[in-house]
Design a binder for these strands. Sequence first.
DNA 1: ATGACTACGCCACGTAGA
Length: 262
Amino acid sequence: MKIATFNINGIKARLGALLEWLDEARPDVALLQEIKSVDAAFPRQDIEDRGYEVALHGQKSFNGVAILSRFPLEDIQRGLPGDDGDDHARWIEATVVGKARALRLCGLYLPNGNPAPGPKFDYKLAWMERLRVRAQELLAAEQPALLGGDFNVIPQDEDAARPDAWRKDALARPESRAAFRRIVNLGYTDAFRARHPEPGQYTFWDYQAGARRRNDGIRIDHMLLTPQAADLLRDTGIDAHLRDREKPSDHVPLWVDLDLDG
DNA sequence: ATGACTACGCCACGTAGA
């Protein structure tokens, strides 16, 4: 089962690019971030026509996450537990039922956190602590599960073309990296890094200053697997070529292929 | 480099992104 994550930076601006990618990459599941749309305005029919079930957690103008799936989704939950006052649409989870096994999917859009320090950075770190608690619960279940999405964290220096330029940024500050490590160190596998140790592999390039042309990118979209999911990992990759098309998102899709058939 | 670019919405220019 091919499972992808893609920060589309606005469904209204990206519908054509999204449909084109679905038709050619044919992911079984797509976790979307930054749909920037309320549920009622989401072009559900265009996606259902391609054989996908659509689960939404939208918001006006900003944020918003979704799960698209060719396999049935069960037990859909919206919102990351731990703060009833948090009204940002940044978390959706569901169980996808494959031919032989089920997988718990968590789609997330982690707060950017800039400027740092400041209240937005405090919100980011608090959100990551809530994520750690949920991640620990998922591990305790000892089942295949996946945390996928835009983490807005550059885990290590090799995940940026110019690490020094990000040193004081909320995406790479020591506090952000430590919070990310605390989650991974619970027992998760960073699927892409496990299979691609080479540098220069990114999922985001700024729109400005020819960043894509110069491969001045960062790796901030991630798929973290529980041990039971990591044992099913067949392959993983980044669809970087989408960044070179007309009207691209500033992020590109990251995917994993998990053997849920046997 | 206080720059650049893109999406969004009170449709004009401020907010947010990363």
